[in-house]
Design a protein around this nucleic acid. Structure first.
Lengths: 244, 244
DNA sequence: CGGTTCCTTGATAACGATCAAAGGCCGTGG
DNA sequence: CCACGGCCTTTGATCGTTATCAAGGAACCG
């Protein structure tokens, strides 16, 4: 199946009916406005690992993730780099950099094969001017991103790796987890442990050790990227600082 | 002078001519739009240390800092808290929380006596709908805040306290520094070293030691909150990772 | 003055980084 | 089908930065 689709051109997608358009900020548009986006957008397929944009590039619009998964990472002059977050299907990518208007401040790469629509900047800009409610949606969205960044900063400063790892797994569970009939929850990590370490501001070795420790303590079991959580409450206990 | 002003009511300020209105997002408004803000706003004086809003409060508008300095901090259920940033005169406060629409996710306190205007939410909302360009300004502003949070996260993860401290001092120098004729630069920190430690995600003791070390190394000299930088290049050297 | 609050300094401990090495998994190519 | 190389993961040993605990001193304010 994957093989069959490998050489097909990107499917013809119409914004009407696209889940990105329904779930996120675009729902503020009326059908006519959405149609204007629809005709202007370009759809592309990215193989795993391809770059969607690079830090420093001029920013000429935003991207809607139709399917797949995208990682956003920043790097500094010394060559250090860090993954900031992953962007799932249904989300809009690159909005902050577009609005800041100073080129991309981070790079985006597909983690898994992804179908992505590009909305040109001038089209978006006129849509915003024509539909003020759309701006409010983007404002709300950006504000939530900022809030997430702030709480992440607080956690990084205060909590040890093991607890942050537990939080990350809970996050992934909420997005990608499937619970079976006996109450156990299974999920497949969208990223490698190594990349998870990057998200946690930690070294791979440290994360590996934390994982081993948590497996040892019966918080979850894991093989490769698969994680099984036998008792959710046990995992949730990890999120709280031990009393005193 | 301070005494004379202590009991005076907040000065009558008109948005026309207010530096916040000129410098920041509000410049996108035409005179009529600005006048509508002007009549709806409420001006208040906050003594040093007073709270402007508290985390969890419902969010009913945004604030313009006319003068003074404001600190924004988040706390978590365990009672930990962390200062996220300071907001200077001329900036607009609480916008992200307003747009996210879920109540304040952080608290704001005046650090020094401050004059602050409150713009009610419904007035702002209708201004945004009437003047789409205003939304673009807020979008650009929020995007820059997010970018700052991201680069801060990167630095926290990678650089030691001493380097982060150097960066903070450079930042404060840019905002509050005055250079004298012999090339030395003097500034007064807007916050205590203890609060600076909070901004740096470090303990006061650690910051104190770093300060002593840098003074010892001749990077700057300090008494109380006063900092004198005899040689700016020497300070800027601290920002770069030593080669290899 | 007394009482804060802030800053300093020392001793110790812990968490995580770093260095090093080996094993597992997977895709590629012979 | 197997061999190879690359990347991810694991594990061990050690080191360093920073937090923690503790206490004394300086500055500020009523």
């Amino acid at each position: 199946m994957a093989k069959a689709s490998r050489w097909t051109p990107p499917p013809k997608l119409t914004c009407t009916g696209c889940k990105t358009a329904q779930s996120a900020e675009w729902c503020a548009l009326d059908p006519a406005g959405l149609e204007r986006i629809n005709t202007a957008k370009a759809t592309r397929r990215y193989a795993a690992g391809e770059s969607i944009y690079l830090q420093g590039d001029p920013c000429q619009g935003v991207f809607c993730i139709e399917s797949g998964l995208v990682a956003v990472r920043v790097s500094d002059p010394d060559g250090n780099s860090k993954m900031l977050r992953t962007v799932d299907a249904g989300e809009t990518l690159g909005t902050a950099d577009f609005f800041a208007g100073r080129g991309y401040r981070a790079s985006a790469h597909s983690v898994k094969e992804a179908i992505v629509c590009h909305v040109p900047g001038d089209v978006l800009r006129s849509a915003l001017l024509a539909h003020p409610a759309l701006s409010l949606e983007f404002l709300a969205h950006g504000a939530q991103d900022l809030e997430r960044a702030n709480t992440a900063a607080l956690q990084r400063a205060i909590y040890p790796v093991r607890m942050r790892l537990a939080r990350l797994i809970v996050e992934f569970k909420d997005k990608h987890g499937t619970s079976s009939d006996d109450g156990a929850i299974a999920l497949e990590l969208p990223v490698s442990w190594q990349e998870a370490a990057d998200l946690l501001d930690a070294r791979p070795e440290t994360v590996s050790r934390s994982v081993q420790a948590m497996v040892h303590d019966g918080v979850f079991i894991t093989t490769g990227r698969k994680v099984v959580i036998p008792d959710l409450d046990r995992l949730l206990d990890e999120l709280e600082a031990p009393p005193e």
